[in-house]
Simulated assay, not measured.
Amino acid sequence: MKKYEVVVNEIGEAMAQLLIQDMLVLFDENAPTDLSSFSVNHSKGNLTEQVAVGDMLYLGDRSYKVTAVGHRVNHILNQMGHATIKFDGADVTRLPGYIHVKGKDPVHISLGEKIVIAS
């Protein structure tokens, strides 16, 4: 079941620097101006159910298993479309807005790709 689905509509020019660090920062269309250069901005989404360990994150055709979810993720994802995806497979979050996932690191993100979180 899909819990969250959005479409990438802008990619910050410095976003690749975070991908090298195995991180991806997401914001919806209301991203703070000072953070938009480091983030992937996407369409407004509707979180229908809380993100939980064991869910799947899809970036286009690539899939990742959710291994840990920060205690603020569901609130800020619903309010601002914001989360930081950390591709390290950790089972404990370092920061309250992190979603940790396991899977092959993304090498690119493209305009028009869907970002989906599903159970």
Rank of each mutant, 00 (worst) to 15 (best):
L111V: 04
G54M: 04
D34C: 03
M56P: 00
E13A: 04
I76W: 07
N78G: 11
Y4N: 00
M80V: 01
Q50D: 15
V107I: 09
R94Y: 07
E49R: 11
I115M: 12
E29T: 11
E13N: 13
V92R: 13
N9L: 06
N74C: 01
H100T: 06
G70N: 11
Y4T: 00
V69K: 11
H100R: 07
V25I: 15
T93S: 13
I11M: 09
D34E: 15
H42P: 04
T33A: 14
V66P: 09
M56N: 12
P32N: 09
G12P: 06
G60K: 07
E49L: 04
I85C: 03
T84A: 11
E29C: 01
I20Q: 15
A83F: 02
I109R: 10
G112A: 03
H82G: 01
K65P: 00
G89Q: 10
N78Y: 02
Q17W: 03
D28I: 02
S63I: 04
V53N: 09
I85T: 03
A83C: 14
T93N: 10
Y58Q: 08
P106K: 05
A52P: 01
A14L: 15
G97L: 04
S39G: 10
M15V: 11
V40R: 04
D34F: 07
L26F: 10
K65E: 15
L19P: 05
R94I: 01
P96A: 14
Y4V: 00
K44W: 02
E113G: 03
V6G: 01
E113D: 15
P96C: 07
G81I: 01
T93P: 05
Y4H: 02
M15G: 02
L47T: 11
Y98T: 12
P96R: 07
G97D: 12
M56V: 11
V66Y: 08
Y64H: 15
Q17A: 09
P32C: 10
Q79P: 00
F87N: 09
K102S: 15
I85E: 05
K114I: 02
D88G: 13
E13D: 13
I85S: 04
G45N: 09
G70Y: 05
A14S: 14
G54I: 04
L19A: 12
H82T: 04
K65R: 14
L19V: 02
G112S: 08
G97A: 10
E29P: 00
M56R: 08
S63C: 07
G54Q: 09
K44F: 05
I85A: 04
A90P: 00
D105H: 13
R62F: 00
M15L: 06
A90C: 08
D55W: 07
A68C: 06
P96E: 10
D22T: 02
G45F: 05
V6H: 02
Q17L: 12
T93I: 09
N9G: 02
K65Q: 15
G45A: 12
N78V: 00
G89Y: 09
L18R: 04
E49Q: 13
I20E: 15
I20K: 15
R94S: 14
V40Y: 03
G89V: 05
Y58L: 12
F27L: 03
M80L: 14
D28M: 02
V8Q: 10
G54Y: 06
L59Y: 10
Y64R: 01
V8S: 11
G103Y: 06
Y98H: 15
Q50K: 14
H108R: 13
